[in-house]
């Protein structure tokens, strides 16, 4: 156990979490005190992402394989990838910056979760030795990151409807940010579709069939359907803005459970059972 506590990636991981914490405090401070904080939030995000990348590299060198297997590894790699995607969004789409008020606290929740997990290493199954693993995981991470950017904005918009969050009214109008929320959801739909396709190609070669309705495939498909449904619902019915934002939350929760719950509560082949 003591050797695990000395796992070289841990200081960098906690450094990264401290970065996210600083970013979250800065963002809320900015909105509460009406201070310009974009640069501070950006810097905190950047530092956090670099520290987490270092943590992943050190762990990779220690374990001899990428962060694909244990819940600790998956959370670590997502803390990095979600942070990186949000960093790019924050940098390139200024209108999406208010999402930081929700996204950074979500990172901290993930941080609390990872802090409870042992950093043990495992053994990469032979089926994971495929370029499709990289494509599948890569586009999946982009999907979740962009979906989280939508959740950030939708969450901020929902928050400002609650009493006590009057300061949030200084942000751009609902209608403007709502357009952005659904643009992110549309892009997320593209990446989710690519994730399903890449996963199917990988499954064909790794397990002999492109689709077997294993738990992960089933829940990923349901997430995809619900994402398609939410895009349709907005076009078909007069869904109130807040109703749309709740749908965004629903899709993200499904995706979150699919990414972090299903693989660890089932014995599907994706877990690498041999």
């Amino acid at each position: 156990m003591s050797s695990l506590l000395l796992a070289p990636e841990l200081p960098w991981l906690f450094g990264g979490l401290a970065g996210y914490c600083t970013g979250a405090l800065a963002a809320w401070h900015g909105i509460w005190r009406d201070r310009p904080v974009d640069r501070a939030v950006f810097a905190a995000l950047l530092v956090a992402v670099i520290l987490l990348a270092t943590a992943i590299t050190l762990r990779w060198m220690r374990a001899g394989y990428g962060p694909f297997l244990t819940l600790f590894e998956i959370l670590l790699s997502n803390l990095f990838s979600l942070g990186l995607v949000f960093l790019v969004v924050f940098w390139r789409v200024p209108l999406a910056r208010p999402g930081a008020l929700v996204v950074l606290p979500v990172f901290l929740l993930l941080g609390c979760w990872i802090a409870t997990l042992p950093p043990e290493t495992s053994q990469l199954p032979a089926t994971y030795d495929s370029v499709w693993l990289w494509v599948h995981v890569g586009v999946g991470k982009i999907f979740l990151g962009i979906c989280l950017a939508a959740v950030g904005l939708a969450g901020t918009l929902l928050l400002r409807r609650l009493p006590g969050f009057g300061n949030l009214h200084r942000l751009p109008d609902d209608e403007v940010l709502d357009v952005l929320v659904w643009r992110f959801m549309s892009i997320a739909f593209i990446f989710h579709s690519l994730m399903l396709i890449a996963g199917a190609v990988w499954a064909q070669d790794a397990w002999g069939h492109y689709w077997t309705w294993d738990p992960l495939e089933t829940w990923a498909f349901i997430t995809w359907l619900m994402l398609g449904l939410s895009l349709h619902a907005r076009l078909t019915f007069k869904v109130p803005l807040w109703g749309g934002w709740l749908m965004v939350f629903g899709v993200f929760i499904l995706a979150f459970l699919t990414f972090f719950g299903v693989p660890f509560s089932s014995l599907g082949p994706h877990k690498g059972i041999i």
């Binding site: 900015g30 310009p36 200024p94 910056r97 008020l101 200084r170 751009p172």
Partner: peptide
């Protein structure tokens, strides 16, 4: 469709305040 429906340039604000950028640097 994103190109044909660009985000508004001077999108509305419920309340304008000078030095906030949330975060505010969004305001062009």
């Amino acid at each position: 469709s994103f190109n044909s429906l660009p985000l508004p340039e001077g999108y509305g604000h419920r309340e304008r305040k000078e030095n906030s950028d949330v975060i505010t640097a969004a305001r062009t």
